[in-house]
Amino acid sequence: MVVARAGGKRKKVNKSRLYLYTGLLAVFLIVMAPLFFRYGLPLIKSGFSWTEAEQYHNLKNFGVPIPSGYKTHGIDVSHHQGRINWAEVAAMEVNGIRISFAFLKATEGITRQDRQFQRNWEKAGAAGMMRGAYHFFHPSRDAAKQAENFIRQVKLKPGDLPPVLDIEVSNRRSKKEIVEGAQEWCRLVEEHYGVKPIIYTSPGYYDKYLADDFKDYPLWIAHYHEDLPRMHHRRWQFWQHTDKATINGIKGEVDLNVFNGSLSKLRKLCIE
């Protein structure tokens, strides 16, 4: 037993109870400290109120300027983003903007599969995200085998976005070789899924290699930190406008995109 003075009288204090309360306080602090540093401290630094802190999905903005005039926004990811919390991605809303769609890397070349693809595909779908899959194309590798690699990994269903050919390297191949390989991949993939693939590339690559032969394909253009992509000579469907976005549920920076149309129009682009 120990004694303490209270109100001029001597009061007995149970030593074991004191240890119990001290231990409970220590456990509470250990549990709450990570939450404080994750949510509380950033809010204090940024001037947010504690009322806003309760809405933790809104703690982050996108971290980059958002192009005006577009209502349908999405991301594209690969294993570089690690394990994504897709429920947080789907719940995020900043100034009325939500993430409506996601393109996920599935395959590359003839042998590579993205190690996070299957998890991302399942979790994004479970979170209600409109999803699509893309293949990183190497003109130096057999186009038919690259198509087979993609088809083996990606099982598209009604409501999914069309497959995507990500073509942005030349591998020291001629324009003729690049075009023939890309056309072969697109032909085989379209035959399998019954829908024309989307072409992802940069303005410079499109103009140099693809402009003469892929005018009828939906275009996803990558052109960063500009008011508009440099593609005034033809219509585009998607624009990847930054690779520096901040998204709830994802560690590190993320590619952010807009769709050139309404959400209902995007749904019409999906597989039926």
Results as ranks from 00 to 15, higher is better:
G7P: 10
G7N: 12
K9T: 03
R10D: 08
R10S: 02
V13K: 14
V13C: 05
V13S: 07
V13N: 02
Y19I: 12
L29I: 12
I30P: 13
V31C: 08
V31Y: 03
A33D: 06
A33M: 14
A33S: 11
F36Q: 01
F37L: 12
Y39W: 15
G40Y: 12
G40E: 06
S46L: 07
S46A: 11
E52I: 00
E52Q: 15
N58M: 08
L59M: 14
K60D: 06
I66T: 00
S68D: 04
S78H: 03
H79V: 10
R83C: 06
A87D: 13
A87W: 08
V89Y: 11
A90Y: 02
E93H: 09
F101W: 05
A102Y: 07
F103E: 01
G109V: 15
I110H: 00
T111A: 14
F117N: 01
R119H: 14
K123W: 03
A126K: 15
A127F: 13
M130S: 07
G132W: 02
A133R: 00
H138N: 15
P139N: 07
P139F: 12
D142L: 02
V154I: 04
V154M: 06
K155S: 11
G159R: 11
P163V: 05
I178L: 13
E180Q: 11
A182Y: 02
A182G: 03
Q183E: 11
E184F: 00
W185T: 00
W185E: 05
L188R: 15
Y193K: 10
G194R: 01
V195W: 00
V195P: 00
P203D: 11
G204R: 03
Y206C: 13
D212I: 01
P218W: 02
Y224S: 04
L228F: 12
P229C: 13
M231V: 15
Q237Y: 03
K244T: 03
T246E: 11
N248F: 01
G252I: 00
V254P: 13
V258F: 12
F259D: 00
N260T: 05
G261R: 07
L263S: 09
K268F: 02
C270Y: 03
E272W: 01
E272Y: 05
E272D: 11
